[in-house]
């Protein structure tokens, strides 16, 4: 099946959304969640998640904590902060505004 690259700039929105739905996740879980929820349409270059996460850590949208996976391995879990929640709302409304506008234009017969 052909997978599409995610539009630039939306990766952090997807991560924030994933975290807000599922609570703390580690990187691998996030990628899987994004791919599965998009019914395998969206493809993330998996590694690019990590620079994005570092940026979000710096901005204070997420915090990271080491925990243990179901398979009993040490993994770093990311958790949404209050600032992250605010950022999610902001990015969502931005996305909807832009996407809605594009949608309206493309619907003009």
């Amino acid at each position: 099946m052909k997978r599409d690259e995610i539009p630039p700039g939306t990766l952090s929105l997807l991560i924030l959304k994933a975290l807000s739905l599922h609570g703390p996740l580690h990187g691998y879980e996030m990628v899987n969640f994004i791919q599965q929820s998009s019914e395998d349409v969206l493809q993330v270059e998996e590694g690019s998640l990590y620079p994005a996460l570092q940026r979000m850590l710096l901005k204070g949208w997420v915090t990271a904590e080491w925990g243990v996976t179901a398979g009993n391995r040490r993994a770093r879990y990311y958790k949404l902060t209050a600032a992250g929640r605010k950022q999610l709302a902001l990015e969502l409304s931005q996305f909807q505004r832009v996407f809605g506008a594009i949608h309206r234009i493309t619907q003009i017969a």
Partner: peptide, 8 residues
């Protein structure tokens, strides 16, 4: 970072 990426 190294450990996290290796795990992934």
């Amino acid at each position: 970072l190294e450990e996290e990426m290796r795990l992934h």
